[in-house]
């Protein structure tokens, strides 16, 4: 699974939802396959926007993004072959599970992606059963997503992507709103995926989670720019940087 391929090559990308309100400014980064990259940044710094761009949902107003060595553009995604191959390889876990879980039942939700991407029914059924078992949500299969707890919704959201067996996981604030047990379980899930050689790109402002899962970190300032990137030990010990980027405060205490 692990190879030297560069999964994403982001080159001087800027993006704005509305004119004169930049969401990303001159962002550049490279993500090698198998890396577990944590994108650290305060609320509104542009982390979610970057994940949406990496998932080909929005496109830069300036700069370029390449995925698996090919340009990731609106035009490229109109091509069926590239679209199918890209969507099969990259999965995005949205911050709000209610957005991601739009089907009438858990079973429909988990089967949605492999069905849309044209997998054979037998293969879809096999993957659905495997994903439900892996996330221990077999009993929820006929339940409506809006009846689930926050932790259950997050498991279903992960199962809905696990059926794709993506090479790259994009996760937007995955631990937000989860109780400690669900958070711990989610960290184990990420570590397991990492162990299997998947590329993990996780946007968060939770430093304790970052410490557990990151092999590298890039930090967003509140000006929507990447102001630092490097090894977790270097970034997480730079208290001045974290404070400047609104990622820690003077009252913060780490309870060991």
């Amino acid at each position: 699974m692990v190879n030297e391929e560069t999964v994403f090559d982001v080159c001087d990308v800027s993006f704005a939802y509305e004119e004169k309100q930049p969401a990303l400014e001159h962002v550049s980064l490279k993500v090698p396959a198998g890396e577990s990259l944590v994108i650290l940044g305060a609320n509104g710094s542009g982390k979610s926007t970057l994940l949406n761009l990496l998932d080909g949902l929005y496109f830069p107003v300036r700069g370029t993004i390449a995925a698996f060595g090919k340009p990731l553009t609106e035009e490229a995604l109109r091509d069926d072959e590239f679209n199918f191959s890209f969507r099969r390889r990259v999965g995005l876990v949205f911050q709000d599970s209610d957005v991601q879980l739009f089907s009438a039942s858990v079973l429909d939700e988990v089967a949605f992606a492999p069905l849309q991407l044209g997998l054979a029914r037998e293969e879809v059924n096999r993957r659905v059963e495997a994903a439900l078992a892996a996330l221990r949500i077999e009993k929820l299969r006929d339940r409506a997503p809006h009846r689930l707890s926050g932790g259950e919704k997050r498991r279903v959201a992960l199962a809905s992507l696990l059926t794709l067996q993506p090479d790259v996981w994009l996760m937007d604030e995955p631990t937000t709103g989860l109780d400690p047990r669900s958070q711990s379980w989610l960290i184990e899930f990420i570590l397991e995926q990492r162990k299997q050689g998947r590329t993990m790109i996780v946007a968060t402002h939770d430093l304790s989670v970052t410490e557990e899962i990151a092999t590298s970190i890039c930090v967003f300032s509140e000006d929507h720019q990447i102001v630092a990137s490097g090894m977790p030990s270097d970034i997480l010990n730079d208290h001045d940087l974290l404070h400047r980027c609104n990622l820690s405060h003077y009252h913060a205490r780490v309870i060991k």
């Binding site: 949902l57 999965g91 995005l92 709000d96 957005v99 739009f102 089967a111 949605f112 849309q116 059924n125």
Partner: peptide, 22 residues
């Protein structure tokens, strides 16, 4: 807002206008 986000979530998992269901 929700409807546009849901549409993005559907696109992200391969939705391109037609639907296949179990």
């Amino acid at each position: 807002n929700l409807s546009s986000e849901v549409y993005l979530a559907m696109q992200s998992r391969g939705f391109r206008g037609s639907i296949v269901t179990l």
